[in-house]
């Protein structure tokens, strides 16, 4: 886990957000002090190249829970709690599907979502 990090900085070298000037959790791991785990692309490249096998994805998810979430992310999360999907998908979707020659789909019900995620 994170205790194994030697601050070699390899994660930061490969991170797509860092290459573009964003500072993500990989900056934290390699000694930076300004970062946001919400800028992580979840591509898991950092984890793949980490010589110490740190589960960086897990570290980033934990960091996200400590930081305030950007509004669009929070809305996606709330959509999941309400609809079971990251978007407000309702039965209306079947009219669009039909126009594209796709069969209608049966969506998860609000009650099923509640039973699955009632602790959140």
């Amino acid at each position: 886990m994170i205790e194994n990090c030697t601050h070699c900085g390899l994660c930061r070298e490969v991170c797509p957000a860092e290459k573009l000037g964003g500072r993500t959790i990989t900056s934290l791991l390699s000694g930076g002090d300004e970062y946001s785990a919400w800028l992580c692309c979840c591509c898991q490249l950092c984890q793949e190249v980490c010589p110490e096998g740190v589960d960086i994805h897990q570290v980033m998810m934990c960091e996200r829970r400590r930081e305030p979430a950007p509004d669009p992310h929070r809305r996606s999360f709330e959509n999941v709690l309400r609809y079971g999907y990251a978007f407000p998908i309702t039965e209306d979707i079947n009219a669009m599907r039909s126009a594209h020659g796709l069969d209608p789909v049966e969506l998860i019900s609000a009650e099923q979502v509640r039973l699955l995620l009632h602790c959140l």
């Binding site: 979430a69 789909v105 049966e106 995620l117 959140l120």
Partner: peptide, 16 residues
């Protein structure tokens, strides 16, 4: 009745 796969949308907030 498929749902969201859970990650990272929910994983960013909870282990659930």
């Amino acid at each position: 009745q498929a749902s969201c796969c859970g990650a990272p949308v929910v994983e960013s907030f909870s282990d659930e």
